[in-house]
Nucleic acid binder design. Structure first.
Lengths: 360, 360
DNA sequence: TTGTACGCGTTATCAA
DNA sequence: TTGATAACGCGTACAA
């Protein structure tokens, strides 16, 4: 005995504008005007056509559209504070991978990278791009001026997608990235799983000015409420700088020899690990960090870092760019306000090459 | 200061067959015959056209192709032993998600599901499909007769993709799925991270007849060599049956009260967990399992299972189907022999809804 | 307000 | 061995 589940034989007779025109007894041009809201059609025929189209489940054929609209050269603009931060390498690969899937439609990608978080600089790039793009992907600085500019872009009909971190004070846009709060909670749960009921934790914070960092710490603290034996010995801030990270972590470990777990909220991983390595092996705390950049992977391989949380950088870029291109090429708006990628736990055994997405 | 990286202005003047025809002073038909190896062209003109095409970097336009090839109805066949096993729900969603991206090309999906692992039945489905598909995705039974049939399919020019588990004795085909050995190794490392230096482990094996299960156990044992204090108390087999799983796990736990970790290699998770739950809470071992099917998720939520390994079922299906459709629609062969998806570690905190891929 | 006709790039068919 | 021609579904400029 065997079941035989065969897909609906859809696709054998697809609904086209031509067919709708025939059925409604009008010309194809009229159908086009109705279905694309171009006006210049009587209300009566318009209603009829719409009804039939809905009944038959009309969907326009992207291939036909691509062919006909080849003279359009829609542009997706990207602004990333990515220079000097290897985390973004994978993200950019994802963006470019997506772009290459769409360049048969005559679309283009304009990628602008910057270093650091200077508001004026990002604003400048934003104003440059605003006039020439139909969609914008940005890793925004959380600043009112940026938010205002983005709101302006959206009024112009530009699709705005925030990538990897979000911004306050900006209207209905789409966010692609991880759930920072959940990342913090997962980190705490992982320490509990590794260490048992009690832990004395040293937190190495990135920056209070970065929303995602604050959210991670919040998520961590909230999850800590379930662990009666957990205690934060100290929270230091490294401003994502390796040297500061090293120095302050070293001081913290000296001041609190009872620390048996270090939670690295953001960058400065290498510096903090160097400080940990100055302790004798048997005295070293459990170290948890985010993202598998090369220096972090090296610290996993030599056993200093026990686990990392991985936020699918490649797919962040891919997803954001796919949404942007679907919009500029096919006019499809994102279906959701947020596309949240999962926080994966990676230990030495299930680490993957950094340029490989979820598969080889 | 800011960097300004702008993508090459490619795509502004695309090379088409028409252009090549004009340049070569022949008709588009001739160019088509050359570039698609249809024959019936003189060697001389063929060479010339090929040279020019290469010089200009011709790439055929999928949109045009999609439109023109709409009368072809290439079929991708799928055979899965999926009935009654919720693991496959996500895989099938991935396959159907991929299929819907390609049905503008007039392609179709023929999905055949079966229950259990009867060789004759799978063979029967295989012979049925062989005559009507251009690509085949199969979750094969590891049997010589199946391997022979698949080899026959490949001789017919059918692209064969094995999904989730592989088969011996079958020639050059493509595998999409997880790395079972690595899954076992990761499981062992995870037990080490959770329990520390010593562990007394009860292994609940699926079936010795299934390659993937054997590989997981091998991977586990090999990784165990690094853990001097680890010991396997007993290995029981449940043949993926819940009742058997319950009974034998219960017996094992009674016989070996020293067991403090249970490694569930395959299915029968719920049954084994029920046996574990008969122990008082403080005596319960650490339980590790694979895949986030609903009953397993329930067992995580009530604390019986501490962690699972997740093998991206949605993306397994999506990837396999994408490869198949790229072949039947665009003639692109898979670039690799294996597409391996990572083994993710999921605890309660970073579990995601089962129907959601890596993102919401 | 409606219809017609052409072109996008490719493939398939028929005639030469 | 070639070339001409008609689709495929859609967008658009232009004519009625």
């Amino acid at each position: 005995m065997h079941m035989f589940a065969c897909q609906e034989e859809r696709g054998l007779s697809v609904v086209t504008m031509k067919k709708i025109a025939e059925i409604c007894g009008v010309s194809r041009g009229t159908v086009d005007r109705v279905l694309n809201n171009r006006g210049r059609v009587s209300d009566e025929t318009a209603k009829h056509i719409r009804r039939i189209a809905r009944q038959l489940g009309y969907e326009r054929n992207p291939a036909g559209r691509a062919l006909a609209a080849r003279k359009n050269h829609p542009v997706v603009g990207v602004i990333l504070s990515s220079e000097g931060n290897p985390f973004w390498d994978d993200v950019i690969q994802g963006i470019e991978g997506s772009a290459s899937n769409y360049d048969i439609y005559g679309s283009r990608l304009k990628l602008c990278t910057m270093k650091g978080y200077n508001v004026e600089e990002q604003l400048h790039l934003l104003r440059d791009l605003r006039s020439e793009v139909q969609a914008l992907i940005i890793n925004p600085i959380d600043d009112p001026a940026i938010a205002a500019e983005l709101n302006g872009c959206m009024k112009d009909g530009i699709l705005v997608i925030t990538l990897n971190n979000d911004i306050c004070g900006c209207g209905a846009h789409t966010y692609v990235g991880s759930d920072y709060t959940n990342g913090g909670a997962t980190a705490c749960a992982l320490i509990a799983a590794f260490l048992g009921k009690t832990a004395e934790i040293g937190v190495v914070m990135g920056s209070w000015h970065i929303l995602g960092h604050r959210q991670r710490l919040e998520g961590f603290k909230k999850r800590m409420e379930k662990e009666a034996g957990f205690h934060i010995a100290e929270v230091i801030v490294n401003e994502d700088d390796e040297i500061t990270s090293y120095a302050r972590t070293r001081d913290m470990l000296q001041k609190h020899p009872e620390i048996n777990a270090v939670f690295l909220v953001a960058a400065g991983v290498y510096g903090a690990c160097r400080a940990v390595m100055e302790l004798p092996e048997e005295k070293r705390p459990l170290v948890l960090a985010f993202d598998s950049v090369p220096s972090t992977v090296a610290m996993m391989k030599n056993g200093v870092i026990r686990a990392i949380l991985y936020q699918h950088p490649y797919h962040q870029g891919k997803r954001a760019a796919d949404l942007a291109f679907e919009f500029v090429v096919h006019g499809k708006k994102p279906g959701k306000e947020q596309y949240i990628l999962s926080n994966e736990i990676r230990i030495l055994e299930n680490l993957r090459g950094r340029e490989e997405g979820i598969d080889t």
